[in-house]
Simulated scan of single mutants.
Amino acid sequence: MDWIVENIWIVWLVLMLLFVTIEMLSLEFTFLMLGIGSAIGLASGFLGVPWWAQFLIAAAASVLLLLLVRPSLLRALRKGADPAKSNVDALVGTTGRVIQPVTEHSGQVKLANGEVWTAHVADESETLTLEPGTPVQVQAIRGATAVVIPTGRNAS
């Protein structure tokens, strides 16, 4: 125990390296704040603070960083995110045409992007069966099935 108390700076260095390594894998700024708290604990040790107070200082600094700094960093990181929808999210709202009769349980549609999807009529639709050539709009994607409603517009 005496060796640890005399060489507490090694413990702080190991903690900082561990937290920064975990942060590189998670990218959520949580472990970065803990690593900075550990650096503050190390700095307090260099100022002659007892080891138990170093841990209290590091813990308090980490909590303050998590509560005050991390939310701002996350907002700044996500501010530049691409607002464009992709994959299945991009299909919601897409128009298309029925190519095989679409009922409450089965059917096929060809979407404006050229993809052919299995489909069924949305529960809230007044029409229970859609005939081939009927223009539709995708309301949702459930698994590999497009949930569609008929539209009055011409779809491609």
Results as ranks from 00 to 15, higher is better:
I4H: 07
V5W: 13
E6C: 03
I8W: 15
W9N: 08
I10W: 04
V11C: 13
W12Q: 01
L13V: 07
L13C: 12
V14K: 03
L15W: 01
L17F: 01
L17Q: 02
L17A: 04
F19A: 02
I22R: 02
I22E: 06
L25Y: 06
S26L: 01
E28F: 12
F29I: 13
F29Y: 01
F31Q: 03
L32W: 05
M33T: 00
G35N: 03
I36M: 06
G37E: 08
S38A: 07
L42H: 12
L42W: 08
S44P: 06
F46G: 07
F46L: 14
G48H: 06
W51Y: 12
W52S: 13
A53P: 12
A53Q: 07
Q54N: 10
Q54E: 05
A59S: 09
A59G: 15
V63N: 12
L66N: 04
L66M: 09
L67I: 10
R70Q: 14
A84E: 12
S86Q: 01
G93P: 06
T94I: 10
R97N: 07
V98L: 07
V102Q: 13
V102P: 00
T103D: 01
E104S: 12
E104D: 11
G107E: 07
A112F: 13
E115D: 05
T118I: 13
A119I: 03
V121K: 08
A122Y: 10
A122C: 04
D123E: 14
D123S: 06
S125C: 02
T127V: 15
L128C: 08
E131H: 03
P132K: 12
P132C: 01
P132S: 04
G133Q: 00
G133D: 02
Q139P: 07
Q139Y: 04
G143L: 09
T145Q: 08
T145Y: 00
V148K: 05
T151N: 00
T151W: 01
R153L: 11
R153N: 14
A155H: 03
S156R: 04
